[in-house]
Design a binder for these strands. Structure first.
Lengths: 130, 130
DNA sequence: GGAAGTACTTTCCTCTAGGAAACTATCTCA
DNA sequence: TGAGATAGTTTCCTAGAGGAAAGTACTTCC
């Protein structure tokens, strides 16, 4: 009995710590666009307009705001280049790269999910046919 | 030149597909609470009140709504048990389990992030001291 | 008989995340 | 000289995400 209580308490502590970790992560990756921006940057450095084109649907205000927050948290670096028309390069910092694990898992899951939905639709069609 | 264009186009397609995958995943995991709920359920089946206690800060309305959406998307199963005071058990479905990769990565990142922040605070203190 | 615990639902309200569009400022090219 | 691209900022607005609290319905315990 005592062992069970202890066990329960220990695992419960584990849960709480892990839920807190999830919460910490979500705090950094909040907002509608951060993960997409990070994913886009994971393919290489991008300029403002490139990001806006690549992350479909995002407006200049949001992009600017999200980039600033990512920079504050040390995930992205901002570099102003004194080219003829001034350009700005955004890049994942070394710390930002540590998010690869998360984005990769999300990409893979999303790809498989799309396959699954597609299969379900096919099955539906067959049912309707028969 | 032609090769470069082709290369760029190919990688660009890859980016778009991956960004779409990210978008698909985020569509399923939207809202403030879904990932926390899934993480909580990843430790075992939970009843409504247990979830509400474990996922700190969530209200009954939100919990109910998020669980319904997770159920609709086939990630969570709901089982009504005819115990004396009726209880309901929520559990990750087999498909819900496929999110383990994502939640694990987020947990690990969150834990390391907390460590990093802690270290930075220590350094700060030393600077203040000296 | 009433307090307390299950599992929600409903109502009402607030706040802010996020969008649209216009504006700033600088440079280039025709 | 003015159109177009760079990189934003600012303003104005609203849909809807989410919170607090009360209500519903059933059961069991005291």
């Amino acid at each position: 009995m005592k062992n069970e209580i202890e066990k329960k308490s220990i695992t419960s502590e584990g849960c709480k710590a892990k839920l807190r970790a999830i919460h910490d992560t979500l705090d950094i990756l909040n907002g509608k666009w951060k993960i997409s921006i990070i994913t886009s940057l994971s393919f290489g450095k991008r300029r403002f307009m490139e990001l806006q084109r690549e992350v479909e649907g995002i407006g200049a205000k949001m992009l600017s705001k999200e980039l600033r927050e990512l920079e504050i948290n040390g995930l992205v670096t901002r570099k102003v280049c004194d080219t003829k028309p001034i350009t700005v390069e955004y890049e994942l910092s070394a710390y930002g790269e540590t998010l690869h694990g998360i984005t990769n898992e999300m990409i893979n899951w999303g790809l498989k999910h799309r396959e699954k939905i597609k299969e379900e639709l096919h099955r539906q069609e067959h049912v309707v046919m028969s």
